[in-house]
């Protein structure tokens, strides 16, 4: 415990670095998954292809990907950019099939009715289709967020600063408190992010909460 208290500034620094690497992939995976899922849903064969590709992509082990990426995209071995790119790919692998399901879950009758009321295509997507796919999308983002926050730690093995450095360093120097601090801080960060997402969902999708509560 005293190690933790003595090194609060180190833990805080790593937490910041961890978030810098975790948040962009979560956001990018979410935003990029929307057009990709819409595209996939437009053709039956494309959807099958996308689902299969996503599954295969997730099967690539993260450490070799982190090692190979600098060669492929020309970044430095210890650049956090590698982590961001790799984790965006993993995020997409999870998020695209979920978003595809989310858009398919929206009632065609409701979409047809929105068109009949005079929604132009872009407005219909933003005001009707996206919010109605929201609950499924939120489910996907929560999984992506937790998985991304946990995967950022792998970069620690390569010396990219993150909470993962705490266990790498703790193991090397035999400091149990440091290892524990790394595990607890990563888990806490993941849980906190998840809780924030749930709250954001309640705020943005009040009708869904009403439905969960049942009919009056």
């Amino acid at each position: 415990m005293s190690w933790v208290l003595d090194n609060l500034d180190v833990i805080a620094g790593y937490t910041g670095a961890h978030l810098v690497q975790a948040l962009p992939p979560i956001l990018l995976a979410f935003v990029l998954s929307l057009p990709l899922a819409k595209l996939a849903n437009s053709r039956g064969w494309l959807r099958t292809g996308v689902t299969t590709t996503s599954g295969l992509m997730y099967a690539i082990p993260s450490l070799p990907l982190f090692v190979l990426l600098p060669g492929l995209i020309g970044t430095g071995v210890r650049s956090p950019l590698n982590i961001v790119v790799a984790l965006t790919l993993y995020g997409l692998a999870l998020m695209v099939p979920t978003a595809s399901d989310g858009f398919r879950s929206v009632s065609r009758d409701v979409l047809g009715s929105a068109t009949a009321q005079g929604y132009a295509p872009a407005a219909r997507f933003l005001a009707v289709e996206l919010p109605l796919a929201g609950p499924v999308l939120l489910g996907g983002v929560r999984v992506v967020a937790v998985s991304t926050i946990s995967l950022v730690t792998v970069g620690g093995v390569l010396g990219v600063p993150s909470l993962g450095m705490l266990f790498v360093d703790g193991v090397r120097r035999g400091i149990v408190a440091e290892i524990a601090a790394g595990v607890v801080a990563t888990a806490a960060l993941a849980l906190l992010t998840d809780a924030l997402l749930v709250m954001l969902g309640r705020l943005l999708m009040p009708w869904h909460r009403g439905r969960e509560a049942g009919r009056p």
Partner: peptide
């Protein structure tokens, strides 16, 4: 149209 045509999130 039938009830399903209302926007469920509004």
């Amino acid at each position: 149209m039938q009830a399903s045509g209302l926007l469920p999130h509004r």
